[in-house]
Amino acid sequence: MSEKTAVRKEQEIDDKATLMPPVDVFEDAAGITLYADLPGVPKEGLNLQVDVDTLTIEGEISLNLPAEMEASHREIGLPRYRRVFTLSRELDREKVAAEFNQGVLKLRIPKAEHAQPRKIEVKVV
């Protein structure tokens, strides 16, 4: 690997540094509900991706800071969030529903019909 590419890679890593948003994940018989906190992300800055077995949540923070502002204290030190989850097989990727309101993302991932619990009748002979 030449020096040039090494330098470029370093920059890429810096550019890709992200914050990990806190999430809540609940599961009931019909599916999984996920909430993620992404404050400062406008609707157009949110990027959700569902692949074969991964769910990727990405958000770009946009705050419209005054141009001449100097930061004196910073707890949110990076402009973007990212978190990746592995989806298990029984979840239905086609039917993911998303709501995004005041910085909170709500995702509902239902279980595929064949994976939903069925009550098995016990016959008395």
């Binding site: 906190d37 404050p39 005054p66 100097e70 707890e75 949110i76």
Partner: peptide
Amino acid sequence: MNIGHTPKSVEIYAFAPG
């Protein structure tokens, strides 16, 4: 919270989603 200042103001950002 992120806090910053300009010559004319103090700017406070509190990240309180939902």
